[in-house]
């Protein structure tokens, strides 16, 4: 069953009077528990598509439905609530808040829930345990390696048990060994915890970890 349905999605940027189409009439289904990789050259619109799925940007036309809810019909306020409940993000540059510890960074999404402090602690420690950093809970990002930072970011992405994990070049800023560890962790999230993952990358080795690969090039999406 498709968790994510994209129907006739188009995105056109307007620069002054000039219309710059990114892609037109894209259709895509991602099933629950699928690990899909989206590849394509720089500027092909991979990140734009990811942002549209996350409700960070608005499509020019078309619809995105996640778990039966039409994301493209939601207000900004509804989108914020929906994102906190259903989407986990992993960025290329980790984007941890530098002044917060690993624990506090992972806890951030839970501050939007009604969980008690004790419940939040249990969730955070579980997430840090999954990413293998429970012994670094009190470390600040500057005290961690790039790979460890990205693992904290993954902990933050999974701590609220989201429906969908969106990862934008998560290994783009890592050395080969760290990148391998991150991809192995993502595979584990998919296989052991049945997380649905959409990974955007232009790294072929990263792409090979996914169950399926799609290419976005010149506005056309192909399997």
């Amino acid at each position: 069953m498709a968790l994510l349905e994209i129907r006739s999605l188009s995105k056109v940027y307007q620069r002054d009077s000039q219309a710059i189409p990114v892609f037109e009439n894209i259709d895509l289904d991602i099933d629950t528990g699928e690990f899909l990789v989206l590849m394509g050259p720089s500027g092909s619109g991979k990140t734009t598509l990811l942002n549209l799925i996350a409700g960070l940007d608005e499509p020019t036309t078309g619809a995105i439905i996640v778990g039966g809810e039409e994301v493209t019909a939601m207000s900004r306020r509804q989108l914020a609530a929906w994102r906190s409940d259903h989407v986990g993000f992993i960025f290329q540059l980790y984007n941890l808040l530098p002044v917060l510890t690993a624990y506090q960074n992972v806890e951030l999404p839970l501050l939007l829930t009604h969980l008690s402090k004790k419940e939040r602690r249990e969730h955070v420690m579980t997430a840090l345990d999954v990413v293998g950093l429970s012994d670094r809970a009190d470390h600040f990002p500057r005290q961690l390696s790039g790979g460890q930072e990205q693992r904290v970011a993954i902990g933050r992405a999974i701590v609220s048990d989201p429906t969908l994990i969106l990862a934008d070049e998560p290994t783009g800023d890592l050395d080969a060994k760290s990148a391998d560890e991150i991809l192995t962790l993502m595979q584990r999230l998919n296989r052991e915890f049945d997380k649905t993952i959409l990974l955007v990358t232009h790294d072929q080795r990263a792409a090979e970890r996914g169950e399926a690969i799609m290419h976005l090039d010149k506005g056309v999406l192909t399997r």
Partner: peptide, 13 residues
């Protein structure tokens, strides 16, 4: 970037 992260995570404006 930090503001972006907060908004992306679902914190309201």
């Amino acid at each position: 970037p930090e503001i972006a992260v907060l908004l992306t995570l679902g914190f309201r404006p």
